[in-house]
């Protein structure tokens, strides 16, 4: 058992220092360029924060940051990406109390239920971290072609992925859409739950202190319905996860917009975030590259 100090109860009369809730783009914490913010409450309607309300311009800036980060992140060794993801889990563990309180407030859960969600979220980062240097062995192949050629297929990251995070599940669901996208070398633009963005904002702070290069994960608080169409039609976005879109007509429109540059689209579906994730979110954002070379003397 690791020793931890027991902290004394905080001074009851102390006026606490509150945080400004901002976006996380390109490794920095800007406010929305639009100057907009919106009120976030807890599940009972009590004021929690004024979150930045991201705009079309913020989404475009985030895509630029994600594209800029893609070359470096996707060419890191898989071992290194795995360590960075594991580092995210480590840093989250240190903020366990904060996450638990925020998830409890956002989702209206008991603190013990919230704690189990935070546990599962941290464990999920660990699970995905381990995939970094195993994916190519599981989904790649050596191809026995009928001729004197060495032929192999490897998975590669698709590129910039837009993730419209689930609206209900503020941390475990969020983690479960981000981790599989970035572990293989993609970079991400995330639109958080509109009503429950606080754990996502804190996750941004974790990213910033976990050796995740700036731009690999960009977090926008605001409305997926408002920002989604700009990301779905953005020609420098390679894939989109429509998870956070609850209206089927809206999902259809976004999928149709995404067809413009043949984005890889993940349609919204019933999700059980506690279930074992399987490979499908990992392979969703992978391309297969096949390389041929003649064999001869």
């Amino acid at each position: 058992m690791v020793w931890r100090p027991t902290l004394p109860t905080r001074e009851p009369g102390r006026l606490d220092v509150r945080k400004t809730y901002k976006l996380y783009v390109g490794g920095a914490f800007p406010r929305s360029e639009s100057g907009r913010s919106y009120v976030v409450t807890n599940a009972k309607g009590k004021f929690l924060a004024n979150a930045s309300q991201a705009s079309r311009k913020d989404a475009r800036d985030a895509v630029v940051a994600a594209r800029k980060a893609f070359g470096g992140w996707s060419t890191r060794t898989a071992y290194n990406r795995g360590q960075v993801l594991y580092r995210i889990a480590e840093v989250m563990e240190g903020r366990h109390d904060q996450f638990s309180a925020e998830v409890a407030a956002a989702e209206g859960l008991s603190i013990s239920k919230a704690r189990s969600l935070v546990d599962a979220s941290i464990d999920r980062w660990v699970w995905y971290a381990g995939w970094a240097d195993k994916l190519a062995q599981v989904v790649g192949s050596s191809n026995p072609v009928a001729g004197p050629y060495f032929d192999f297929s490897l998975p590669e990251a698709t590129g910039v992925v837009a993730l419209l995070a689930p609206q209900d599940d503020s941390l475990l669901g969020l983690t479960s859409v981000i981790a599989p996208a970035i572990v293989s070398g993609n970079t991400a633009v995330v639109v958080t739950s509109f009503e429950r963005p606080v754990p996502a904002i804190t996750l941004g702070e974790v990213m910033a202190t976990s050796d995740v290069p700036g731009g690999v994960v960009n977090i926008l608080t605001g409305s997926a319905s408002e920002i989604g169409p700009w990301l779905a039609s953005h020609l420098d976005v390679n894939a989109i996860d429509l998870c956070g879109i609850e209206d089927p007509d809206e999902a259809r429109e976004l999928e149709a917009a995404a067809a413009e540059n043949l984005k890889r689209v993940r349609r919204p579906a019933e999700e059980d975030w506690f279930a074992s994730p399987g490979l499908s979110r990992l392979t969703q954002y992978l391309e297969t590259k096949t390389v041929w070379h003649p064999i001869g003397v």
């Binding site: 192949s141 191809n143 026995p144 072609v145 009928a146 001729g147 050629y149 032929d151 297929s153 698709t158 590129g159 390679n238 540059n261 043949l262 391309e287 297969t288 590259k289 096949t290 390389v291 041929w292 070379h293 003649p294």
Partner: peptide, 21 residues
Amino acid sequence: GVVWANTFNRFDPASPFGGYK
């Protein structure tokens, strides 16, 4: 999706073929 090195336009049923972007 397919890179041919010192060859080109080779196809085989065992070899995955398809595109990026």
